[in-house]
Each structure stands twice: as C-alpha cells, then as structure tokens.
Design a protein around this nucleic acid. Structure first.
Length: 109
DNA sequence: GACCTGACGCCCC
DNA sequence: AGGGGCGCCAGGT
C-alpha cells in the first residue's frame, strides 16, 4: 500500500461534490475512514500544486466557514468560485450551509 | 527523535 | 454559547 493512496481517494470524493453544493473535511474523512479530518486538508493542500480539476473550493469546515481560503493563490478565489456556482458567502461563511451540505454517501444513492 | 504546526472536530466546562 | 483542551496524522525543524 502506497502511503499516498488515500490522497487519490480524497480527490475522487472532492471531484464528486456537485456544483452548487459543499462538503466538509470531517464528512470526507469519515466517509474514507481516514481517522483524521486534518488529512483531508493536508491532501487538498498538496492538490494546489497540481491544481488540476479538483474543486477544492467546495470543501469547508464543519461550520461552513471557508477555513482553507488563505491557501489559494488569491485569498478571495474560494469565495468567488463558490458564488460563481450560486453558493452565497457571507463573512467567509457559506450561507445556508446546512442546506447546501453534501455528504459523500449521497453519491451511493 | 523530541517538539511544533496545521485547509479539523469532539468534549467539557 | 464561546473558549480551552485534546486526539488525530503527516510534515517540517
């Protein structure tokens, strides 16, 4: 087992977050049984390097706060990317987070 | 190898 | 209801 195998899993899950919805570090960590939500953030941090088709802006913390915003090239990118998808953001927090929250398990329905 | 630092989150005041 | 403590795991120093 490559130690970085789960990183691909994280990317896979993040890629499956529907446009206009958001998920959380914890939900993804739970779904993948990572044991630590921090690892999701860590994985996404490395994703900025490849910065590919991974919609990392759709991942927020458990309060809907854009805790990862400072890790994007432009600190305002995360908010703008979300708003571009119809997700409203106020005070660096997703408006109606509870309703827009998407759990990875929904993908299995 | 000890110690610190996180894109986190739960528990306990 | 806001804040501190702590477990978590990977990297950096």
């Amino acid at each position: 087992m490559s130690k970085t195998h789960y990183i691909e899993d994280v990317y896979e899950v993040v890629r499956s977050i529907p446009k206009g919805r958001v998920s959380t570090y914890g939900a993804i960590a739970d779904f993948l049984s990572l044991g630590s939500a921090r690892m999701v953030g860590w994985a996404l941090r490395n994703s900025s390097v490849m910065d590919g088709p991974i919609p990392a802006h759709r991942v927020v913390n458990r309060e809907g706060y854009l805790s990862g915003r400072l890790h994007f090239t432009d600190p305002k990118y995360m908010q703008r990317a979300l708003e571009r998808e119809g997700v409203k953001v106020k005070e660096d927090t997703v408006v109606d987070f509870k309703k827009l929250f998407w759990h990875p398990a929904e993908n299995m329905l």
